[in-house]
Design a protein around this nucleic acid. Sequence first.
DNA 1: TTCATATATCGAGATTTATAGATATATTTG
DNA 2: CAAATATATCTATAAATCTCGATATATGAA
Lengths: 100, 100
Amino acid sequence: MNLRKATEIGKCLSNETRVQIMEWLKKPEINFPPHETLKHFNDGVCVTYIQEKAGLSQSTISTYLTNMEKCGLLISTRHGKWSYLKRNEKTIKEYINFII
Amino acid sequence: MNLRKATEIGKCLSNETRVQIMEWLKKPEINFPPHETLKHFNDGVCVTYIQEKAGLSQSTISTYLTNMEKCGLLISTRHGKWSYLKRNEKTIKEYINFII
DNA sequence: TTCATATATCGAGATTTATAGATATATTTG
DNA sequence: CAAATATATCTATAAATCTCGATATATGAA
């Protein structure tokens, strides 16, 4: 972690919806319905569910999630036509160790 | 800590200079000269020293520091005509516990 | 291959933030 | 009180971000 990376993470965490997404993804099974195809939450939650819960447009949420993955806050995994997102606890810890 | 407060803190941490200030204030005695009047760093570092080190205008840094205090990242203490800033470790920990 | 669905990217207007200079306020000193 | 210094606030312009609709791409199904 360095100053630039930490600032990129800070930018992602400077918007209420994005912080909310990080909170939701702490407990996917509580905050989201089980996916019709995938029967587990091992790789997180698909973009559509996050988008519907957040109530913003598909393009906006897609951009959010892409940036959150680029800065390391999230991990994205594709299964067929779905992308699943989960928290990247490793980077989150590195960020916290940088800030504290 | 709640979603709104965490987002306010995130906004403060979304700018490289402000993150840098948080880092500098981890070790004031290493990053700043001792103050001519006050002989200790118990209350942190005065605005002028931070402003000079950051290299931005006085008004910009004053606004930064005011906002960082408002969201709880910093504690401000006045001694005569100087304002001293130090990290508010309590809020920082609350923020980290919210994020992690 | 064609269609339907999921996600990503592009382009643009609205909103917010960055940053500075000017000015105001507070405090100490002469 | 007047001058000097430190900090805060106001105002304005430039830059960045927000957010959407439109469009493109990717994948599975028919």
